[in-house]
Design a protein around this nucleic acid. Structure first.
Lengths: 147, 147
DNA sequence: CTTTTGCATGGGAATGATTCTAGTTTACAC
DNA sequence: GTGTAAACTAGAATCATTCCCATGCAAAAG
C-alpha cells in the first residue's frame, strides 16, 4: 500500500523524486496535472528536482501503469493517477475543469467496433470539449481561471 | 463547389497557398496529415511555401470548419479534411494506419452524458489505439512504415 | 485595366514543451 | 559498509509550433 512498495512492484527504485511525485499526484485536488504543474508543486514543497526528472518519472509511471497520460486539446500532456477504474473525460474549454464519467454502453460498443475490425485495443480515450454549467450560467465556476 | 468558392464562403481570401493546401488535403490518399506532411507535399509540387504558412492556414481552416485537427498520441497534430460526416478513429500504433467508424449508439450516449452534466459540447473525439489485423497476422500491413 | 488597401506570405528568429547528455549521486544487493 | 547499476541534476538540444516584419498579392475601387 505504501508508495514505496508501489514503485518496487512496478520495477522502479524508490527514489526521493519518485516518491514525492507520486504523493503529489495522489494528493492533488485537481487531479489532472501537466508536468509543469507537478514541477511547481515540487518546488513549493521545497524539493530540489529538475524538470527533466519530472518528465522522465512521469513517462516511467505511465509505462508502469501508475499514471494515465492525456493529450487534451492544446498540445500539452496532462497526467492523472491511475486509480484502476477507467473513465472518460469532459473538459470545459472556458474554465479548464475536467469532469469524469463512465458509461458501460459506450465501452461495450467500442469493444464491438474494435472486434469487428480485428483490432487489439491497447487503450482508448474519449474527450468531450464544451462549456460547463457554471460558465454558461454565471460566467464563472468553481474553477474560474481561464487558460 | 470550387475550392476558391469554399474559401470565400469561409471568409478567407483565395490565395495560392490556401488553394494548394486545400487541394492537397482533398487529394490525399492517407487523409490524416501532419503540418509537416502537407509542407512536404507542397514542396513536391514545386510550390514555394513557408512552413509557417502551412501552420497558419491549417489553423484558419480549422477555425472555418474546413478541416478537423486531431491530437493523437505522440504530441503532434494531424489534420483531415472535413467531409461533413462526423466519425471516430482507431489508430494502429504499429503501422500508423487510421481507421474511421461511426456508431450512432455511442454518439447518443455521449449526448446524454453531456446533457446530464448541463454541458454544451462543442466537439468530442474518441480514439482507440491498438494493433491492426495486418500487423498482428503478418507483422506488416498495407501501410508498413512505423513511425 | 490600373491603382489602392489591407490581409497574407516567407523565412528566420522565438517560444514552449519535452528529451538528451554528461558528470555526479544514490538505492539497494551482498 | 561497499560496489555497481540505475537515477539524479542542470543545462544544452530538439521538435513542433508560433511570432515578427518587410514584402507580396487578392479583391475592391476607380
Amino acid at each position: 500500500m505504501s508508495d514505496s512498495a508501489d514503485l518496487k512492484k512496478a520495477g522502479l527504485k524508490a527514489t526521493l523524486p519518485r516518491l514525492k511525485i507520486l504523493s503529489i499526484l495522489e494528493a492533488a485536488k485537481v487531479h489532472h496535472m501537466t508536468a509543469e504543474d507537478v514541477y511547481k508543486a515540487l518546488l513549493e514543497t521545497g524539493e530540489e528536482v529538475g524538470l527533466a526528472t519530472v518528465y522522465r518519472v512521469l513517462t516511467q509511471f505511465e509505462a508502469a501503469g501508475l499514471v494515465i497520460r492525456h493529450n487534451f486539446e492544446g498540445g500539452r500532456s496532462v497526467f492523472e493517477i491511475n486509480q484502476g477504474s477507467h473513465h472518460d473525460h469532459v473538459v470545459c474549454v472556458e474554465c479548464g475543469e475536467v469532469f469524469e464519467f463512465y458509461d458501460p454502453a459506450i465501452e461495450e460498443r467500442q469493444r464491438k467496433v474494435a472486434e469487428s475490425l480485428g483490432f487489439d485495443v491497447d487503450s482508448h480515450s474519449l474527450y468531450m470539449y464544451g462549456v460547463c454549467l457554471g460558465m454558461k450560467r454565471h460566467g464563472h465556476c468553481s474553477k474560474k481561471e481561464g487558460r
